[in-house]
Design a binder for these strands. Structure first.
Lengths: 341, 341
DNA sequence: TTGACAAATGATTGCGCAATCACGTAGATT
DNA sequence: AATCTACGTGATTGCGCAATCATTTGTCAA
């Protein structure tokens, strides 16, 4: 498998190598008939450009770097899928790393990405270390933070307000008559902390906040941990009448544990998940959850990078809030059951 | 941010650039004191190697390419996590693309990966097109197929027998007294087809196979589709007394739909999932599922690539069967309920 | 007719590194 | 003492492409 170079293509089509390069990168700069000849030669010889050489010469690669905290969290798989679908068909490709929810690991990863002169970077959240922020700000490529909103993005931020999402959910639960609403939180990453703030502020507004209703763990979320945490919650606060969970897995676990304990939902216990990953809507009863536009966020972030690389100017507003949507379902509907679905 | 090159580091430490290169790539080839001097200079100047230049000069990059059919399928997130964890800390990085379960898309993706002279390739399954196989076989890097077994791998294959896994599961269900066992299949990718073969062969062995018990859809698996497919199944074959599902999501959906229809599990209906993604074990009743060592497969594939690049020879046996484990739970236990868990 | 200018193509150079070969020195071997 | 060898280091070169500048040809206005 001998490597076919621009020179070979040039010989085949009777022009110089540099003209071939132009024909491929700026087709409008060469005459139409030459363009066709070059394309034919490329096809005939099976020429594929050497990305390393191209990167070295132009100081710009076609790699888009994506940093997510975890691969196994469905939320981020959806982000990746959205970004990947948007990039597909373009000349760009994605390189991915996970930070394991560690800002320091992230700080080590960023320079590794930057040395390959990426065409863009997508990074989760706003809680980078100052060093990471500085590196990214100094990087000569578009940088998109995702999954949150901020007044002070590095370049662009695409996401939704975790705080606001929590406020809406908890407001809804209060409105439906729940008074002893727990916060069940796993992992406790920065975005979960935002949700906790929204929860707390809302309950405080109604004078319903109680420290004993906070059940948190640094462990990753899962159905199993959800079951376990309900047990813990009921020991700490037996009079608890509902829970706002930072994740759907946990909510599903709690729902299953409710079944086990013969607690009826929503009559004995109201339940709200987060992210609306799909299973919640299928449970018996269906579980209320905050839908987050994960795939759209990934797609919008990728789109921005593509556009910037195509010469487009950044928008005036550097914070794209895609919002979240409270999906109200039976697990929190005590009043007006008729009107809602 | 001026780029720091090997020359700069050389000046700082009083040697030539090439010696610095050697000190970094083959530390044992330079004298210890020089090594320390170079390391100090690297640190002082903040030198980071240029991967494009390195790739161009050595015709070998540090990128490991991974092709999976889908990001949103949990199975592949786990594979990625396993591979990523193994690679972490090494000089390698992962570049990922999804093929959308299309062999043709895969065929288009492979040359794109190969042009960057990857340090290794991980690709899902054995059903590549001949062109893809040829490209990979001709590629000058280790290639690992995953998630299946084969007598004729391109280079190495790491996985388990989907056929055998299905045989074990269905044998178990027959042994537990189920006689009208359905196969509920989504997506119907090649590995699901293997499972279908195992299912079919086992039932035929007992004279229990019936076309009407096959319920399949090209749609992707989800809890929702599981619910739906149970309805479909019960219309086609009302006397059906159990189901072997190609995926846990589907099994969970069926379990929830059973609750809805007041069908008791396992008394009225036996249920077995596939992959054992975590939720199955938490359901009421817990659902039997075939555990597949996804993270281990990703890790083993990455490990092989690392080892080969470190000069290690390939093993004699080119097929690494990591096996699967049937997790027997209440959803299929009709007999001997005491003995098992 | 001339000059000015634009469009199309070519020549040269260098991106930063590693492969290859060359060289020098010190100690070992005969 | 002459030769050999191992080891540590340096010089040269080229990987394949794109930035930059240079050249040619054609077009049109004055």
């Amino acid at each position: 498998m001998k490597r076919v170079t621009l020179i070979d293509v040039g010989k085949e089509s009777g022009v110089s190598a540099i003209t071939v390069s132009r024909a491929l990168r700026n087709p409008e700069r060469v005459s139409p008939e030459l363009r066709e000849r070059v394309y034919a030669a490329v096809k005939k010889l099976g020429y594929v450009p050497d990305s390393a050489a191209s990167t070295l010469a132009s100081r710009r690669s076609t790699v888009i770097g994506i940093l997510v905290p975890s691969f196994s969290n469905h939320v981020f798989s959806d982000v990746l899928a959205g970004a990947s679908d948007t990039i597909e068909g373009s000349k760009y490709s994605v390189q991915i790393a996970n930070t394991g929810y560690s800002a320091l690991k992230e700080e080590a990863l960023v320079p590794r990405f930057l040395t390959m002169k990426p065409a863009g970077m997508i990074i989760t959240g706003v809680d980078q270390t100052q060093a990471t922020r500085d590196m990214l700000a100094g990087a000569d490529c578009p940088v998109v933070q995702i999954m949150d909103v901020s007044d002070d993005p590095i370049d662009l931020i695409v996401g939704f307000s975790n705080f606001q999402a929590a406020v809406e959910a908890v407001e809804h639960m209060v409105e439906q008559g729940f008074r002893r609403i727990a916060f069940v939180g796993t992992r406790m990453d920065p975005r979960t902390q935002q949700r906790l703030r929204g929860y707390r502020q809302t309950l405080e507004k109604y004078g319903l906040f109680d420290e004993r209703l906070l059940i948190t763990t640094p462990k990753k979320s899962s159905v199993e941990i959800g079951r376990h945490l309900l047990g813990e919650l009921l020991e700490t606060a037996p009079d608890c009448d509902g829970a706002f969970c930072n994740n759907d897995d946990v909510a599903v676990g709690i729902a299953l544990e409710c079944q086990n304990r013969n607690m009826r939902c929503p009559d004995d216990f109201g339940l709200c998940g987060f992210n609306d990953l799909g299973t919640t809507s299928q449970m018996n009863p269906p579980i209320t959850s905050v839908f987050t536009p994960r795939a759209d966020i990934g797609a919008a972030a990728a789109r921005y990078i593509l556009d910037r690389n195509a010469g487009q100017q950044p928008p005036e507003n550097r914070c794209v809030d895609l919002g979240s949507t409270l999906k109200v379902r039976a697990s929190t509907l005590r009043n007006d059951r008729k009107e809602r679905q």
